[in-house]
Design a protein around this nucleic acid. Sequence first.
DNA 1: ATTCTTGGTTGCAAAAAGCAAGTTAATCTG
DNA 2: CAGATTAACTTGCTTTTTGCAACCAAGAAT
Lengths: 144, 144
Amino acid sequence: MTKSNQISRSSCPVSCALDILGDKWTLLVVRDLIFFRKRYFGDFQNSPEKIATNILSDRLKKLEESHLLLRRRDPANARKIIYMPTEKCVDLAPPIMELVRWGAKYVPESNVHENLVQRFEQDPVEFMGEIRLSLRRENEANKE
Amino acid sequence: MTKSNQISRSSCPVSCALDILGDKWTLLVVRDLIFFRKRYFGDFQNSPEKIATNILSDRLKKLEESHLLLRRRDPANARKIIYMPTEKCVDLAPPIMELVRWGAKYVPESNVHENLVQRFEQDPVEFMGEIRLSLRRENEANKE
DNA sequence: ATTCTTGGTTGCAAAAAGCAAGTTAATCTG
DNA sequence: CAGATTAACTTGCTTTTTGCAACCAAGAAT
């Protein structure tokens, strides 16, 4: 399953992005990958939003098809599968951070994970660099 | 209909934002409001993505409930209704622009509306200021 | 050997999306 | 001023997607 079977609704980049990301769950999985470094099926399941396993399974499949993540078997434990974000996935950090700012400003019940936001706000370039670097290290470690 | 009947899935601002914006259509309506200055039902209908009228009707209702837009009767034509974005709506310009950048970078079939992006990129503060200013003028013009 | 853990799948009910057609009220047109 | 047209929806119906709970298979731990 490596084909991107999406037929885009229009050539507008917002619409194209939403063809991939436009639902209630996909960006939460991406958030978990980028900001909370979640890598295993169970990690995503344990997020506070409590995604159903069939939906999670479907979203991970679609994210893989859209090349936002790579699926690998854990070399240390053959029944575990590692979901690794790609560059395309990590580059969603800026839109997500802007959503965080908006949510924090306008949705009173939202509670920002302070240190993450502060680190991004202070120096977005360095923050992104760190994520990319640690991703490269992970990739080395899990080579097949 | 002025209540926000959402029960949020978690206190994470991303999740809170997606409770309001997380589907394939809502952000496209917001895009039309902010970047293409669409104000009438028919304008949104004519966007290239061809939203169905019942869905559009529903999304406009929900956006009003979430205080992202105001509904007014056009003083110049009593059968027309003007949908005006609020400050809360306009503040979605940064997340949307980041989605534009991402879409433009990664989705080959996407075609960026050049001048809009360039204007935002060159000076986001001025760009946002312009939108806000022209919104205030519109508000003056349509006072009841 | 059996129990637990991980990463799923399956089946079913409920909700949402999508399509076409119909409706109402205001306005233009001759 | 009658009839056609336009704007903004609504309704009914089918298809698709969600959400929940239960189930399952392979691998690891005891």
